[in-house]
Design a protein around this nucleic acid. Structure first.
Lengths: 234, 234
DNA sequence: CCTCGGCGTCACGTTCCCGTCACCGGGACC
DNA sequence: GGTCCCGGTGACGGGAACGTGACGCCGAGG
């Protein structure tokens, strides 16, 4: 579960530290060093999944930014974590009214921030529909339960195999280069040979049995999961 | 789904803010600014659907109020959300022991509070009329009494173990990552290693005996409580 | 002051998953 | 048909992930 985090913070070195730490945790990061910049960054594509917002900014107050975020459809549902320097007592009432989702008091630990970001993302993800059951021909996977079946018989997949299968299923019909699979399934900073993909595709095909034929090899390009189940019959 | 929320909170401006926000979300609100007032308000008609309770009150401790609420038939089943200032986290454990249903650490956001109120209302609505007992195969737990049995034999669980078991039971069949368990069972601001989860799962399995097999380990993912008791036989 | 229970952490052992390599087999193109 | 690679395949070593027992801390209660 990676995601895009927007950090609105005018202290450049603090912002950079956060950026570094968040990236090393697998998040994508967008920085903004002023309020106006932050507002623009919040509503540009792709919209961030979480916003970390400093209360004290040179041009706009954090509460004002929060209010404006809540006025726009694009950012209305985006969780906001407010940061306040120690001693500057938050006006809790104002904070509530503008709809921040969480608070941190400086100095805070990066660990703590990451925990809260993850928690907020989980919450949004949970309410955000996207059915957890995906069916495809004789195949069925349940993301919540982390289980997979072929013809009503459950097959035991490892964590990596499950992610790989899910990547295929959610991009069915489209070619996936090995590099694309590596960054999607293994992660951006994966230090792995492209041939590793082959091995895991093989293992996945084995476990899928006959349904392994859903995965096609495109010589010189990559892999493609069939677009329609019937194609397998051909 | 509107409902009546009783807010027991001595800080008048915070209480007023909550009242305003809850009303604008469609709830009816009743305010009480002291413990005694709150106890009276809790059992007067119509009885509230949810109670939001500050732990620090001028006259009575929040835990004491909670205890008394649980002693009265009229309020025994009413869900209670406890609010505690940061630093009083010891009381969190006590809070669950006296039968609070959820807690929030100040400063919290109104959106978070509303989400939790809705969740509790949904839960009550679903289980209303049924006893507070949850049965699952050879397992039985009583949420109000905080007791647990395996095969009609009671097992002594600590407060933490009980919450962990309850978290598993209420999300049965779905994978729980260690991070998710940490924020749900320990609280978002818990300063704890993810490996701590392992230890407590182990202790819980021990106490559950054979029924400990209900808790499955998914390597590289997290833990999953079985969806159906019969799966254990397989 | 001592003891005890609950909780978090650490270190160790084990399991099994993952990444790599080397060896083939079989298309693709001439 | 030959040659060149690309991908399938089996084996293997390292290490990540988990179970487990032990220890220390801290607050409660005597």
């Amino acid at each position: 579960m990676s995601g895009l985090v927007l950090v609105i913070e005018d202290e450049v070195d603090l912002a950079t530290t956060l950026e570094y730490n968040l990236r090393s945790e697998g998040f994508q990061v967008r920085l903004a060093h002023s309020g106006r910049q932050g507002l623009a960054a919040a509503s540009s594509d792709p919209t961030p999944d979480v916003i970390v917002l400093d209360l004290m900014l040179p041009d706009l107050a954090g509460t004002e930014i929060c209010r404006r975020l809540r006025e726009q459809d694009r950012t209305r549902e985006t969780p906001v974590i407010m940061c306040t320097a120690k001693g500057e007592e938050i006006d809790r009432v104002v904070g509530f009214e503008v709809g921040a989702d969480d608070y941190l008091v400086k100095p805070f630990s990066v660990r703590e921030l990451i925990l809260r970001i993850r928690a907020l993302m989980r919450r949004v993800q949970r309410t955000e529909g996207e059915p957890s059951l995906i069916r495809f021909g004789r195949l069925k996977i349940d993301r919540d339960a982390h289980r997979a079946w072929v013809d009503e018989g459950e097959i035991g997949l490892t964590a990596l195999e499950f992610r790989l299968l899910h990547a295929f299923l959610s991009r069915r019909g489209r070619v996936q280069t090995r590099d694309a699979l590596l960054s999607d399934v293994w992660g951006i900073d994966a230090d792995v040979t492209t041939r590793t993909v082959d091995t895991h595709v093989k293992r996945l095909r084995e476990k899928l049995g006959d349904a392994g034929a859903y995965i096609e090899t495109l010589r010189g390009v990559g892999y493609r999961f069939k677009g329609e189940p019937e194609e397998a019959e051909a």
